[in-house]
């Protein structure tokens, strides 16, 4: 995968395919970016499980916080990483270990070695993107904010779906 320019079809397949997202670095602080993303993804029907060793036992947006990916019970489809690029390496390895199908690194987070390890283990990898922004871009909601979504169509569509 060319990690500088993802085709829309690649991102769309990921967002259409995953149901449970473990969010590593999820913050209980309501004005942090992870809180924004978690809230939006919940509204769109995803189950988001927060992982943050500094907030173990607390709840964020109604979900219990776990200390590590290994502690999360049940299957994880995608691991969304809200940590710096260096920390993303071992988290990506833990995501492979946990059986996730997708590793997603947030805006500003990029670790090419970890991405290569993930892809070698048949995971799909996204780096330096936000799932909230990508979801909104592909479903038309981001156009509500004056953004160039890159989407041209003469078909009527449901926005926000």
């Amino acid at each position: 995968m060319n990690h500088d320019a993802y085709p829309d079809s690649y991102i769309r397949a990921i967002l259409d395919g995953v149901k449970t997202i473990a969010m590593v670095g999820a913050s209980p602080n309501w004005n942090r970016p992870s809180f924004f993303a978690m809230k939006y993804l919940q509204i769109k029907g995803y189950r988001v499980i927060p992982v943050n060793p500094a907030a173990v036992g607390q709840e964020i947006l109604g979900e219990r916080v776990y200390g590590s990916l290994a502690e999360v019970p049940g299957a994880i489809d995608m691991v969304d990483i809200f940590r710096n690029s260096e920390a993303a390496g071992p988290i990506a390895d833990a995501a492979i270990e946990a059986g996730a199908k997708v590793v997603w690194m947030q805006l500003g987070v990029r670790n090419d070695a970890a991405a290569a390890r993930g892809e070698q283990a048949d995971l799909r990898v996204v780096m330096n993107r936000c799932p909230k922004i990508e979801y909104g871009r592909l479903n038309g909601e981001l156009a509500w904010s004056g953004v160039n979504t890159g989407i041209i169509s003469s078909k009527r569509r449901k926005q926000g779906a």
Partner: peptide, 26 residues
Amino acid sequence: MNKPNGPYGFETLSIHAGAAPDPTTG
């Protein structure tokens, strides 16, 4: 969700960019 856009020309974009049919009324 819609198909990705192709490498459209400037004239096409001048008419279509941002302006899909109205989702409520068509």
